[in-house]
Amino acid sequence: MDAIHLEYDVDGKNFVSAGSATESVKAQLKGLGINPADVRRVAIAMYEGEINMVIHANGGKAMVDIFMDKVIVKLIDTGKGIPDIEQAMKPGFSTADEDVRNLGFGAGMGLPNMKKYADECIIESEVGKGTTVTLITNFS
């Protein structure tokens, strides 16, 4: 069977609409009757990724493919890239500036949470070119 393909533009520096792609994906998964706990795992991981694109990469695209047994979320941006992925993955590591921290982001917990909640979290990044985060969540 074909996958259900969804695409969203994620606006850079727009904190008001940030998270709307995640809300939409959540609604589709609920429509499929996916186990609520799985929906929640997808939502937590995708939301972190979406916010990262807003804060660190001036926006990007979210491409989502839903299969019978899993969902693949690709968050693609053409932002500044991550120089040291291993370091970025460390809990607490953040390059967020003062303004962003005042908004409640920048605890350095986004990437660790994505890794924790998704079954697979693949980060590809090139400095100056952009970052692609792939989150795969299998349905129980």
Partner: peptide, 21 residues
């Protein structure tokens, strides 16, 4: 009450969502 699910059966719900899209 699951007012969200398109169908109780995931396969059928999946087909319906494909059609909707």
């Amino acid at each position: 009450v699951d007012a969200n699910a398109l169908d109780e059966d995931r396969g059928a719900a999946f087909k319906k969502l494909l059609e909707i899209q």
